[in-house]
Design a protein around this nucleic acid. Structure first.
Lengths: 414, 414
DNA sequence: CTCTATTTTTTCGAGCCTCGAAAAAATACT
DNA sequence: AGTATTTTTTCGAGGCTCGAAAAAATAGAG
């Protein structure tokens, strides 16, 4: 249970503070770091000199803009791009992509591939993933030793220990321990992340002012997913990645959902549901396997043109999302929302009904003050979140003396 | 933002560990504390000798049962009951109760009072609260100086800073900053807590095995409330006490809820809703102000006797709770549930429909493994939770050197 | 071009804190 | 009475952070 703080934990934690301050701030001077961490200048000086000696940080002749000031100019501290690297794998419907990212967060290599995830047998799916990773690792330009971590993101439910995919809409297969598989194959620590959680992580890095301590990222795609940050931390369920917003019950016994149950939010707001309603196929119609983004955009265009079943379909989606968000807000209070995915591009069609629905719920009091951002393209967000998640892990490993540091660096000698 | 750890924080935190280890374990020996905290024997020895010197802990000639062992017998450490005391105030529908609790957690005085909260004007309600507290503080048997904290719990929504009641079903009044009022009046730090959150706190102290890191306490009373513990911490909303499970939407546009909206879980499962359905008054009927516990018990008895509208009313309540829990489980995954309040005594009537509903939701996969506890009497739980919450605050104040310690104790001199 | 003011960074000794090992204390068993 | 065993305290060593002072590096003034 509650662990006491050992004396040597102190340095560990404060190293952590310094590294994360540098990652957040870009090129802060030692003085700035001292200010944000609350530690003394002497401490920051000692720690950063250690980190530079270990090749984790490097001095960069800093902000020329501010060098107009008097005194001794600040020396910016930056992450040394060569200190380590991470590899991200994003597995989504019929699509697999990997990227290699250096310690400073820059993409240094990538590869993408189409594949038929829905019909692929287990071995083949796993094989494709390991193969694409292996190809990247065998790249002669890459120092394999520097790859410190792999983060794999997938649509669907992952376990709360970030080891396995439990269930995913992109494949009928279940319980694939991707993290263990990749670790076993390549001997590099790996984690298995939920795509929407990675979206949330990315949003926070992109716009820390708007997405700080509490916010919601909702994926409006074939299915409905959610990434939730509460009190500054990624929210996960007790056993799984949790936050299955799409499968909150909107109408008990209602429309047939892809998950086999009835009345889920997704059964009204997922692409297949909007499609089904627009085509007036009835709520019991079996969900179609996939609707292309182009088809969805065409559907939205038609809905904008005339008040027909297409517009009504988007209205129903908005209503379901609104009541769902209302129930969510009853639990966590309102927070900024980012709508991501192809249907976020049709948010103009969704928003009126959504706001009307929210107004009828507990969140309704603040209905006006709730603001929505839209971002139609989810893949870059997911990849970015994966990268930052993996890099944060590496940061932690680096200041944990117990762990072998894989970067080609030697300890400074006092 | 992220604060570094100063050198003097170390002692503070480790003192915290020791105190909370003692509060949890009852009368642990120094060796046991060392084991649970992971700190060395020397450190525990130093800290506990400080704490004893300051009058916070005391040695108690420990477990005679274990003194059969060889070696030097363990000396149990106990909280010194006189180190401080706290005062709890529980304000519920037409009922106000206070208790004074010593540092070891024993009730040393209490007082209860009926009052008409629904019609009472603002000044009077506040006046009643301050008056009952003043009476306790003026008790000649009590050392006023020792009262280190006041915790006030109320049914309804409180703000996330534990300062004010925002809204409550027990009064039409809103936005009463009880914590500030009591602090101003008596000069004793006070907090304003949500009743269901305090239930959850109490459950954890009562049965730490069952209610550890993740669990749900649901109040089935006139209204429906929830206290939620996730990852070992009390879950609150971003702005308010949050966790308004009762106002998640069960059926959009459905039955009229006491909150003025439609289709909330509470509009089917609150006492007034069960009453309304049992009396076949229609879902639009204005909720009655109060139903006595005796009436509810009579209703449950009739429902058990024959399959009439009463039984159907409980079935609907179960359905609403089941779908609500199902949606909640979609977000947080299933967790142990405690049903508290008068209708928890009728859980046999509620459970079948509840389980059936859950089975139709995302939580359904684990439907069988979800276990429910029942506790018909909420008041003792709330009071107990309040006491532990207040005592935990005092624990924190005691190891924070910045704070003036109000207990009559002097620092040990080295 | 030199000197001064200013700001950043490093150095150094002081003061704490935790730890491990050893000693001391307190009991049961023989 | 002596020995084994377990708990608790003592003590010196090693680390860490801090504040103050020194050193470093620049802009502006004369």
């Amino acid at each position: 249970m509650s662990a006491g703080i050992r004396h040597d934990d102190l340095r560990r934690r404060n190293r952590a503070m310094v590294i994360s301050a540098v990652r957040r701030a870009g090129q802060p001077s030692r003085t700035e770091i001292a200010a944000t961490t609350g530690l003394s200048h002497s401490t920051i000086s000692a720690i950063s000199s250690d980190l530079i000696g270990e090749g984790i940080l490097s001095e960069s002749k800093a902000n020329e803009a501010i060098s107009l000031k008097r005194g001794r100019p600040q020396v910016g501290l930056a992450l040394n791009p060569e200190a380590a690297a991470v590899l991200t794998v994003v597995l989504s419907l019929n699509f697999l992509s990997v990227a290699v990212i250096d310690y400073a967060g820059q993409v240094i290599a990538e590869e993408q591939r189409r594949l038929d995830t829905l019909t692929m047998p287990r071995d083949e799916l796993i094989g494709e993933c390991t193969a694409i990773v292996r190809r990247r690792l065998e790249d002669p330009d890459l120092d394999v030793q520097s790859i410190a971590r792999i983060a794999l993101a997938i649509q669907g439910i992952t376990d709360s220990h970030a080891r396995a995919m439990l269930w995913s809409p992109i494949t009928p297969l279940t319980n694939i321990a991707f993290a263990d598989i990749l670790e076993g194959e390549f001997g590099i620590p790996a984690t298995m992340e939920n795509d929407c959680n990675m979206m949330a992580v990315a949003l926070r890095w992109r716009d820390p002012d708007r997405y700080r301590d509490d916010f919601i990222a909702i994926l409006l795609s074939h299915g409905i997913g959610m990434g939730l940050v509460l009190k500054g931390e990624l929210f996960t369920g007790t056993h799984s990645s949790g936050g299955e917003f799409g499968h909150m019950i909107h109408r008990p016994g209602g429309a047939l959902c892809r998950c086999g149950r009835r009345g889920c939010v997704e059964a009204y707001a997922g692409n297949y549901a909007i499609w089904r309603n627009a085509k007036q196929m009835g709520e019991d119609a079996e969900p179609v396997a996939d609707v292309s983004d182009a088809d969805m955009r065409a559907l939205a265009a038609r809905a904008r043109e005339a008040d027909g079943p297409e517009r009504e379909a988007y209205r129903k989606a908005g209503e379901a999302l609104g009541f769902g968000l209302g129930s969510l807000f009853a639990l966590i209070d309102p927070a900024p929302v980012a709508m991501v995915g192809v249907s976020a591009g049709a948010f103009d069609l969704i928003e009126p009904a959504l706001r009307e629905a929210i107004a009828q719920t507990a969140g309704g009091q603040h209905s006006g003050s709730i603001s929505f951002d839209t971002e139609p393209n989810e893949l870059p967000l997911i990849r970015e979140g994966c990268a930052m998640q993996a890099l944060s892990f590496v940061d932690q490993e680096i200041f944990a003396p117990g762990t072998q540091i894989r970067a080609g660096s030697k300890k400074s000698v006092a």
